[in-house]
Nucleic acid binder design. Structure first.
Length: 101
DNA sequence: TCTATGACGCTAC
DNA sequence: GGTAGCGCCATAG
């Protein structure tokens, strides 16, 4: 499980600025396909001020899965990276999704 | 051991 | 494109 966390963190740290990816993708890249929920769980335990670009991780629908203040924080951070977000809070994955080889 | 839960994904309509 | 349902897997109680 610790190994899982290490891999997750490694993958997330690889996400380039201005790009976003999904929980499922992160899990798969880390070598744990099907563990999307656990990615979110791991991130929820991380401190807000973590150095990791956790805000570049969104769900497969291109939406932020957080609520209230946390959600607006993430949205703000993404906007700072030139990621356009629709009025309904959706991000165009076609355009911003990052998928490595 | 069983049930509920979660920053999710995929398919069907 | 948007929502609803069901599946998935580890953890907490």
């Amino acid at each position: 499980m610790d190994q899982f966390l290490q891999q997750i963190m490694l993958v997330i740290s690889q996400i380039p600025q201005g790009k976003v990816t999904t929980y499922g993708e992160v899990a798969r890249m880390a070598g744990y396909p099907g563990y999307a929920r656990h990615v979110g769980k791991a991130l929820s335990k991380m401190p807000r001020d973590s150095k990791l670009p956790w805000f570049r991780v969104i769900n497969s629908q291109g939406k932020i899965s957080l609520k209230g203040e946390a959600a607006s924080r993430q949205r703000k951070l993404l906007e700072q990276e030139e990621v356009n977000i629709s009025e309904n809070g959706r991000i165009r994955l076609k355009q911003y999704r990052w998928h490595p080889e």
